[in-house]
Design a binder for these strands. Structure first.
Length: 138
DNA sequence: GCCAACGTTGGC
DNA sequence: GCCAACGTTGGC
């Protein structure tokens, strides 16, 4: 069971919109990067990921689950990229800010810290557990 | 609004 | 196939 992190600018697609999409969820389109594509292709239905607000907010705000595995992204004219469907699982009682992540030695190796531009990132089991604690779960 | 990091494009 | 130029992303 792998863990992930999905990055989105709230101005484009926010956590509130994801919550509003409910159980049916939505497709996570727009990935145009091969490393990010690789992450999408590795995702299995039922796996969970953090929902991170970039630019504005700069914090992990919630948890989503993969509900449909990789399939072609109809918004990609080149036909090279795909997407998965995700649904909101729960909000974090306390958002975990980028500042807090950077300040925590246990999270120093996170992709978010070292390659912040990657839009879909793998998260280790230890990082997953740590951020859940910082976020007020567990 | 600036700039660093990174990916992509295109000329050779 | 290399590398310079350019565009985009995202933190500050």
């Amino acid at each position: 069971m792998a863990y992930w992190l999905f990055k989105s600018e709230p101005a484009t697609w926010s956590w509130d919109q994801q919550v509003a999409a409910g159980e049916a969820g939505t497709y996570w389109n727009g990935v145009r990067n091969h490393l990010a594509k690789k992450q999408l292709m590795a995702m299995q239905v039922g796996e969970q990921g953090f929902f991170y607000h970039s630019n504005e907010g700069k914090a992990v705000v919630g948890i989503v689950a993969v509900i449909r595995p990789y399939y072609p992204d109809h918004t990609d004219e080149t036909g090279r990229f795909g997407m998965v469907d995700v649904k909101a699982v729960r909000a974090l009682p306390r958002p975990v800010t980028l500042e807090a992540i950077k300040a925590d030695p246990a999270l120093a190796d996170m992709v978010l810290v070292n390659n912040s531009r990657l839009s879909v990132q793998p998260v280790s089991e230890a990082e997953w557990a740590r951020i859940r604690v910082l976020g007020g779960l567990d």
